[in-house]
Amino acid sequence: MPFREPDPADPNVLVGVELPASPEAMREMAYAFAEEYAALGYGEEQLLRLFRQPAYAGPHQALAGLGEPEIRRIVRECVDVYGRVRFVVRDSDERIVKLRLPARPRKET
């Protein structure tokens, strides 16, 4: 079949847009999610569940692209750093708030 270079001026030619991409972008994304969530306190299993969940297409695509052993290695590397500490949040006393909702009118019988 003869091949012609596509003519971008031809309205019938499907023009694709080339995206610059580094082969390491997927790994970098996986590291970003793993680091961020490890810093939030996620452990290894919790983080792996995030990557396995297909509804979270970003982490899941990293798992599909890099494979579970590599994702597990990335997760372990990040948990090894951030899992050493646990962030604790202490509310001030004012945080205990009593809800004051209007009383519901009683139905007359």
Partner: peptide, 12 residues
């Protein structure tokens, strides 16, 4: 100016 919360770190 009232304190809302404080975050600190605990080593497990």
């Amino acid at each position: 100016g009232n304190e809302l919360f404080r975050t600190t770190v605990e080593e497990p």
